[in-house]
Design a binder for these strands. Structure first.
Length: 403
RNA sequence: GGAGGGGUGCCGGAGUGGACAAUCGGAGCAGGCUGUAAACCUGCCGCCUUUGGGCUACGUAGGUUCGAAUCCUACCCCCUCCA
């Protein structure tokens, strides 16, 4: 039956497989499979939500299968309607190209480049003419489109749905035909699109692809799926400290999900964590530190993770100054000056600690600003070289004189 | 093509001639509490300012008025029903 590796592959961090029996048969056949993963270069930055699926791809690759990465340069012009409540704006070709490059750079931080074939949709769609479009679209009905939840919701809420959006699943589906995909990967919100591929392949005489759906990772706000536009994301290009800090700020109920979906920690150990949380025999903060460490290690290496550990403990737990911080330079009239008078609101704006002077004044009034630990309320301040300006709990700048 | 409804701040959504930089909720920011969790409490939440005030903003462009988010005209966009 299933060996343990295979079991892990299709059970851990998987939402749904259509159909599992067929997929297992394919995997056991020993044939290298063509794994389809598409993306729209409309959103160039990969975050931990994407990593859930990318890690799966990696695991399949380790068993000898091949990833076909589809660069959706045509679908990006439409905008994926999945989970959207509004029509997305179209993008320029230049923007798409630039985004695709950024995306691939990040993609290969998780997925093995050597076992990946990148294909652009334009390889086949550039050749399409209107009669090809007719042939393709005639295979689907409006009722089928409206069957999907996001469309039906928008429709009944009286929100617009453009015709091109209805085209989206069909185009994505045809990609599967074009590259003869064996398995398509995606988040659960991709179910409809992936199934369209399955149907289309059958209509066009190909064996239907299997659909491998991974759960959607909840973002740092603890309520919605992780997405850049919601601002609840943790980017894989985030610097170590920031990544660590964001992970520490996730709500407790997310801890186990994160361990399951984006780390390699074995199931029994996660079960133990879960038990500890349920019985309150551990401070969840300890587990989050472990989680943060694991994930920062994945993307930045162990050394950076250790450094982030230390930085977090120092700045956020012990409320001490960070080891190094950004500086703000102050121009001097003459090198002999040892202290100067400055308007703090201007400095805060200059140092990007406040968006406007109005905001800086508000911060001041709220007691959010201090210099060397001394809370200040006056706009005019006396500064010396090496003073540390702090805004809020953890934004620091070191004053640097430049004569 | 016809009839009707609507476009307000990051989002939702009040406001239908002056007291509106615009009720309220959410998001966000700051302070308290804490585990940079949640919950909770408090304050802030357009820009500039010599703190008097000034400027920009309620789809766009004009107009009426001492005064317009609110009235008029044209235009743009969205939705619903009929065809």
């Amino acid at each position: 039956m299933l060996n343990s590796k295979l079991n892990f592959l299709i059970r851990r961090g998987v939402a749904e497989i259509i159909t599992e029996a067929e997929l297992v048969k394919l995997l056991e056949s020993g044939k290298p499979l063509r794994l389809k993963q598409g993306f729209d270069p409309s959103t160039p930055d990969i975050h931990l939500g994407h990593v859930v699926g990318l890690r799966k791809l990696r695991q399949f690759q380790e068993l000898g299968h091949k990833v076909i990465l589809i660069i959706g340069d045509w679908t990006a012009q439409i905008g994926d309607p999945s989970g959207q409540s509004v029509t997305r704006p179209m993008l320029s070709p230049e923007q798409i190209e630039a985004n695709a490059q950024t995306y691939m750079k990040q993609f290969f931080k998780v997925v093995d480049k050597e076992k990946t074939e990148a294909r652009w949709q334009s390889e086949w769609y550039d050749k399409f003419n209107l009669s090809d479009v007719f042939k393709l679209t005639s295979k689907f009905t409006v009722a089928q489109s409206l069957a999907r939840e996001d469309f039906s919701k928008r429709y009944s809420a009286g929100r617009p749905i453009s015709l091109t959006e209805m085209l989206y699943p069909i185009l994505q589906g045809y990609d599967s035909v074009a590259i003869q995909a064996d398995v398509e990967f995606g988040g659960t919100d991709q179910k409809f699109n992936c199934l369209a591929g399955r149907e289309l392949q059958q209509m066009m005489g190909q064996p239907p692809q299997q659909v491998f759906l991974v759960p959607l990772l909840i973002g740092t706000d603890g309520s919605d799926k992780m997405s850049k536009s919601l601002g609840n994301h943790i980017g894989i290009d985030d610097p170590p400290r920031e990544m660590y800090g964001k992970l520490m700020s996730i709500p407790d109920p997310l801890i186990i999900d994160y361990f399951e979906l984006i780390t390699d920690i074995p199931n029994p150990e996660i079960a133990e964590f879960s038990q500890q949380l349920a019985t309150q025999s551990i401070n969840p903060m300890i587990l989050k530190k472990r989680l943060a460490h694991e994930i920062v290690t994945q993307f930045h290496g162990n050394k950076a993770a250790l450094e982030a550990d230390e930085h977090f403990a120092r700045v956020f737990q012990r409320r001490e100054l960070p080891e190094e911080m950004e500086s703000i330079s102050i121009g001097l009239k003459s090198a002999s000056e040892i202290e100067v008078q400055r308007d703090i609101t201007r400095l805060l704006v200059k140092a990007k600690l406040a968006k406007s002077r109005s905001e800086a004044r508000r911060l001041l009034a709220q007691g959010a600003v201090d210099i060397d630990g001394q809370k200040i309320s006056q706009e005019s301040v006396t500064l010396k070289d090496g003073n540390v300006i702090r805004v809020g709990k953890h934004d620091f700048r070191k004053v640097k004189f430049q004569g």
